[in-house]
Amino acid sequence: MEPRAISTAFWGFIGPMTASRSLKIVVVSSVGILGLVLLVFFMGWIEKEDIDSLRALAVVPGIPLAAAILSEMTLRDGITHRTLLYPLLGPVPRPVLAIVRTLATGSLLAIFSAVALLFLHVLSGRGWNELGQEAAAALLGSLTYVSIFGLIHLISKRGFIICIALYGIFDHAIGMLPFAMSSIAPSHHLRFLGAAEETFGIPVVIDMPDPTLPGSILFLTATIAIAISATAVIFSRKSLAELC
């Protein structure tokens, strides 16, 4: 990959975003919400346990749901608003554009979620031991869901509905099964990394292996690689403007 093409793809994505009013609104709202949590906590209206539950919710379903919204920015928004042509004429090869934009969106979500998790982690009074694992959850979880949902948004104009359906029906449900089958769901590994493990209260437990740190990291990394590769291939073959 040429460095110039990568930087064009990156700045072609980040530049318009930094000027976007909607992003500024999201940032201000996020700071507002965190401030509200802080206020409620110091007023003594919620306990540390509640903050910990909030932290667990920020991991799952927080990260997947945020990814379902944000992943539209990777390629779909550029197709809708017909602005992908600028970096493509850069000229940036299509696979480079797909990879860079997916990684950039995933990293953006990872930063947001890491800050939120750190904030809630500190308030909940959890020890520092799990902090590294939670950072891994923020990074890998964000990249995993952004790459999967970005692919769905690329394929379908109604990507958001499909993302939510896929997450709710398949990923979330299977990930909480008390069977080994749960390990095929990304959310299962994200829960483990984010110390937010939870299973359905079914009185049947069949061969439920404990996830491991290397296993979960490997699973999520492989998922990211597969989803990004598929995005790059499909985007390369997608019919866009006549010009490119």
């Binding site: 700045w11 530049g15 318009p16 975003m17 000027a19 992003l23 017909r82 602005t83 006549e242 010009l243």
Partner: peptide, 16 residues
């Protein structure tokens, strides 16, 4: 076939 960057102003679009 190209649009103008949405969400920002004209001068921002030209700058990008």
């Amino acid at each position: 076939q190209a649009g103008v960057f949405p969400g920002g102003s004209g001068v921002e679009a030209v700058t990008f």
